[in-house]
Design a protein around this nucleic acid. Sequence first.
DNA 1: TTTTTTAATCAAATATTTTTGATTAAAAAC
DNA 2: GTTTTTAATCAAAAATATTTGATTAAAAAA
Lengths: 107, 107
Amino acid sequence: MNQEIQIQDVSMEKFFEKYEAKFKALADKKRLQIMNILTQKGEMCVCDLAPLMEMAQSKLSYHLKILLDANIISKETRGTWSYYQINQDEINHMLSHELCCVFKPSC
Amino acid sequence: MNQEIQIQDVSMEKFFEKYEAKFKALADKKRLQIMNILTQKGEMCVCDLAPLMEMAQSKLSYHLKILLDANIISKETRGTWSYYQINQDEINHMLSHELCCVFKPSC
DNA sequence: TTTTTTAATCAAATATTTTTGATTAAAAAC
DNA sequence: GTTTTTAATCAAAAATATTTGATTAAAAAA
């Protein structure tokens, strides 16, 4: 209990809410698969990811938004295309080293 | 991609399903708070945890079961009492060192 | 033995999340 | 300029998860 965040109950409440949202984003096998693909491929647009995931575009966009809102992935728009990539820092701060090979390209 | 688990798509599927369940268990602020209390107190029975969480017994048992099924906590029954404690190993294998102070008593 | 305490489970109600198909807006291609 | 491609968003439907209050079973206390 030596971090600022955890000094008071009010802060703890905020902390738990923050991680609730982050873990919620991770709590779906399709989203974990998306993360795994983005880790391997480095960067992908929705139009290439959709057939790979065998997922309708609107459904994929829904899941990408959840990961994006949780700061687990990031987006770069070029022209009409949206390119998504994994947010390596966020993964490192959340997950154990043991999960590295799935969500870290360096493994 | 150097772990057995990740050699084939079939294995990956299982792997993602396993972690979906685990992250789902973590994806609730009340459950994170339960985990935090168990980390601090070491061991607690439902009857002591319920007033601390300001939660009805049936509701608390529901949340404890989710954590138990995900192997995040474990249970020991003595008499009519059920004592729950955090599963330190599981936490270590899942979460980053940075989350240690919340869910590891050693921090 | 009877009563009380403990905690799991159940079914119904409620709330939340996900899926689906359609619409929209913007940029690219023609 | 018109058509096509790309991807976000929307609203309704479907699927899941959570809450609630009651019931149950087992052990403890009286």
